[in-house]
C-alpha cells in the first residue's frame, strides 16, 4: 500500500519547477542579501567587503556625520510634507472627479500622466521651471513684482521644498487614482441613505466614506511611504543633493558611500537604517492587515 503512493517531493513537480525563480529570489536575494548587508554593516569594509568586526562603529560614525543627519532631516521634512499633501491633494481631487463631472477621462488622464514619467524627467523639468533666471521667478518679476523671490533650488534653506513640488506633481496622480477607486468601491446606497437622512456631503465624506475607505488608505500609505524612503533619482536629477548638502537623502548617501567613496561599511550601515525605517511602517501594517484579518474573518 504505502509504496504505491507517489513521493511527496515529486508530486506537483512542474509547479515546483515553476516556483524555483521565486524561491531563489526570496531566499538568496531578499533574505540572503538583506542578512548579508546587515552582517557587513558591523564590519570595517572599505573598497571591498571584509569580515573585520568593528561592532557599532559604522553606526556611530554614521550618526556623527553631518551629511547623514541632513539626509535624515530632509527625509523627515520631505516625507511628512509629502505624506500629508499627497493625501490631501489626492483625496480632494478624487472627490471632485467623483462628482459625475464632464470630461472626467481627460482630467484624470492629465493628472496622472506625470506618474508615467521617470523621476529623472520629472526632476529635470522642475529644475527648469524653478530656474530663477528663466522660470517662475523671472516671469513674476517681469510682471512688475520686482522683489519676488522664488528660487528653491538655489536657496539651501528651502531647496527640499523645490524637490517636494516636483514629487507632488509626479505622485499625487497615483493617490488620486487609488482614492477614486476607493470612492467608486463604496456602495452607492450609502450616499442615498445619507441623502435621505439629510447629512451634508462633507460630513458624509468625513464620518462615513473615509472610515469605509480604511483599507485603501492603508495600502496607499504603505505605497507612498516606501516610495518616499526610496527617493533617489529625483534628487540626483533635480538638485544633485545641492546646493551644498541641503537636499541630500539617505538613498543617495548609500549610493555615494558604496560606489564613489569606497566606504562600503558606511553604505551598509546607512542602508540598514533605511531598512529599519521601512520596517517601522510595514511591520505594523502587515500585523494589522494580516494578523488582524483572522478575527475579522
Amino acid at each position: 500500500m504505502a509504496d504505491a503512493r507517489p513521493s511527496q517531493l515529486f508530486r506537483n513537480k512542474s509547479a515546483k519547477i515553476a516556483a524555483i525563480p521565486m524561491i531563489v529570489t526570496a531566499l538568496f536575494v531578499f533574505v540572503g542579501g538583506t542578512a548579508w548587508t546587515i552582517v557587513y554593516s558591523f564590519t570595517k569594509s572599505g573598497l571591498l567587503p571584509r569580515l573585520k568586526w568593528v561592532g557599532l562603529d559604522q553606526y556611530e560614525r554614521l550618526w556623527s556625520t553631518k551629511r547623514w543627519i541632513v539626509s535624515i532631516e530632509n527625509l523627515m521634512i520631505y516625507g511628512l510634507s509629502m505624506l500629508v499633501l499627497v493625501f490631501v491633494i489626492g483625496f480632494i481631487l478624487a472627490a471632485l472627479i467623483d462628482q459625475k463631472i464632464r470630461f472626467e477621462n481627460t482630467i484624470r488622464t492629465v493628472i496622472l500622466y506625470p506618474y508615467a514619467l521617470s523621476f529623472v524627467v520629472t526632476g529635470l523639468v522642475w529644475q527648469w521651471i524653478l530656474n530663477p533666471e528663466f522660470g517662475i521667478e523671472s516671469i513674476v518679476r517681469s510682471w512688475g513684482w520686482e522683489s519676488f523671490a522664488f528660487d528653491p533650488l538655489y536657496n539651501a534653506d528651502i531647496a527640499i521644498f523645490g524637490v517636494l513640488i516636483a514629487g507632488l506633481w509626479q505622485g499625487s496622480g497615483l493617490v488620486m487614482v487609488l482614492m477614486l477607486a476607493g470612492l467608486r468601491g463604496i456602495d452607492q446606497e450609502v450616499w442615498k441613505a445619507a441623502r435621505v437622512d439629510g447629512i451634508p456631503a462633507w460630513k458624509t465624506y468625513i464620518f462615513i466614506v473615509i472610515p469605509m475607505m480604511r483599507p485603501v488608505f492603508i495600502t496607499t500609505l504603505v505605497l507612498v511611504v516606501t516610495g518616499i524612503v526610496k527617493i533617489y533619482d529625483l534628487i540626483v536629477a533635480q538638485t544633485g543633493g545641492g546646493p551644498g548638502i541641503s537636499t541630500e537623502v539617505p538613498a543617495k548617501y548609500v549610493y555615494d558611500m558604496m560606489f564613489q567613496a569606497n566606504n562600503l561599511g558606511q553604505g551598509f550601515a546607512a542602508s540598514t537604517m533605511m531598512l529599519l525605517t521601512v520596517a517601522l511602517v510595514v511591520i505594523p501594517w502587515a500585523f494589522l492587515e494580516f494578523g488582524g484579518s483572522k478575527k475579522r474573518g
Binding site: 516556483a19 521565486m22 538583506t34 558604496m258
Partner: peptide, 18 residues
C-alpha cells in the same frame, strides 16, 4: 516563499544593491 517575496518588495533596494 510568496510571503517573503511580497515583503521583499518593501525592502529598500539600497539594502540589496551590493
Amino acid at each position: 516563499f510568496f510571503t517573503i517575496l511580497i515583503f521583499g518588495a518593501f525592502i529598500p533596494y539600497q539594502v540589496m544593491l551590493y
